[in-house]
Design a protein around this nucleic acid. Structure first.
Length: 155
DNA sequence: GCCAACGTTGGC
DNA sequence: GCCAACGTTGGC
């Protein structure tokens, strides 16, 4: 299977690209996703080596701040089984897990953040999922041409 | 802080 | 299976 590209949102107050950069081995399980579509992208769509656009949401300005990479196959999200976790889900049965995640690793910080506003002005991104009205998904697929256009603007 | 858009829940 | 109520997301 060829390499795919994804946009993954995170609120920087919760977990920023800088936080990922400072993690041991600069990698982290992408836990806490509790949306079925986003889960399906991780569980069924992602492969090791896929490229990730790291997006900061709920901040000023929102936008893509750098690059990460998928570094594991999908596996059950352990926080769903942890009663002390804020992501605990009593309906996720360890013998039939409901929630999955992948590990992601830091790759690069952009020289220039590519803001949401700038993205809206880029004709190459007219079809991009994250720009469609009403889209709240925290994980969306990105085409190779979209990925390259954003890298060209940010690196 | 507001609120549009969307997903989930649960009564029926 | 329908759909109203509710909760969340996330830009502004």
């Amino acid at each position: 299977m060829g390499k795919h590209y994804w946009l993954m949102k995170s609120e920087p107050d919760t977990f920023s690209l800088q936080d990922l950069k400072e993690r041991p081995q600069q990698r982290e399980p992408w836990d806490g996703v509790r949306n079925y579509q986003a889960r399906n992208f991780m569980r069924d769509g992602m492969s090791v080596g896929d490229g990730i656009l790291f997006y900061h949401s709920n901040t000023k300005p929102p936008g893509i701040v750098g690059l990460a990479e998928v570094v594991s196959e999908a596996y059950p999200d352990p926080t769903a089984f942890d009663k002390k976790s804020k992501y605990y889900d009593e309906k996720s049965d360890p013998s039939n897990p409901r929630w999955f995640l992948v590990d992601v690793a830091y790759r690069k910080g952009f020289k220039h953040q590519v803001s949401l506003e700038a993205m809206k002005g880029m004709s190459e991104l007219a079809e991009m999922k994250v720009l469609q009205k009403g889209n709240r998904l925290s994980i969306t697929p990105v085409s190779e041409s979209e990925y390259k256009a954003i890298c060209a603007a940010g690196l």
